[in-house]
């Protein structure tokens, strides 16, 4: 992974993207000790999934990482191209790039398009608040409150979505796909037919027949 790869941009930002004003352009470090700017290098024009973790976390963090690994497999062809995962440490004081590298390798998660990030504690706290702020002190000040969340962004659409590591895999995949670039009308016509077939299969499976 080099800086050029990080700078690969598939789309332009949406014209209404809040850009660095919301996401900040804080300089973070990847597990390979590369410097990256949060908005310009990681968010701008991209579809990304962001979560917070720390290497020594034995609560929900490994579960989240496992979930992301499973998700990664589904999106393998897109990862590092137009879809990226960012796992940001909530304990930057403890988590150096090296320890994050170790964490990622231990879990076979040191993969293209998936960055484990550390940086200045103030910057990271700012990013965490910008992405997960619920305007509720009981929620926002508790580190553990944000570890199960996956923030799904598509800067090229200014899409702002979310999933939970605790959702079903299908649900997580769908929510990430909901953030994909808009389909064309023709693509939606095809997609709607697929959805219709799925609906009819469900009605049949559960016996929700239409007659009284």
């Amino acid at each position: 992974m080099d800086r050029r790869e990080l700078l690969t941009r598939v789309y332009e930002p949406h014209r209404s993207s809040p850009g660095a004003a919301r996401y900040t352009n804080a300089v973070l470090r990847t597990q390979d000790n590369k410097e990256v700017r949060f908005y310009d290098d990681l968010i701008r024009g991209k579809q990304v999934v962001v979560n917070f973790m720390y290497a020594e976390c034995h609560g929900s963090c490994p579960l989240v990482t496992q979930t992301l690994k499973q998700t990664y497999r589904e999106f393998k062809d897109r990862m590092g191209k137009d879809l990226f995962f960012y796992s940001i440490t909530t304990k930057p004081e403890e988590d150096t790039p090296a320890s994050l590298k170790h964490y990622a390798e231990m879990r076979n998660a040191d993969l293209p398009g998936w960055y484990f990030l550390t940086g200045d504690p103030f910057d990271i706290k700012t990013i965490r608040f910008r992405l997960f702020n619920m305007d509720h002190p009981g929620f926002d000040v508790d580190l553990n409150m944000h570890t199960g969340w996956l923030r799904i962004l598509n800067d090229a659409r200014n899409y702002w979505g979310m999933a939970q590591a605790f959702a079903t895999q299908k649900n997580i995949l769908n929510r990430i796909r909901w953030a994909d670039m808009p389909k064309s009308h023709a693509e939606w016509v095809v997609e709607n037919r697929k959805i219709q077939i799925a609906i009819e299969q469900d009605v049949k499976k559960y016996g929700y027949r239409r007659d009284i």
Partner: peptide
């Protein structure tokens, strides 16, 4: 664990919204 959810009787943790 920071996740709003609805638990049913007997659920260990409770699911988050699953439309499927």
């Amino acid at each position: 664990s920071g996740v709003f959810r609805v638990k049913r009787p007997g659920d260990a943790v409770g699911c988050v919204f699953d439309p499927d």
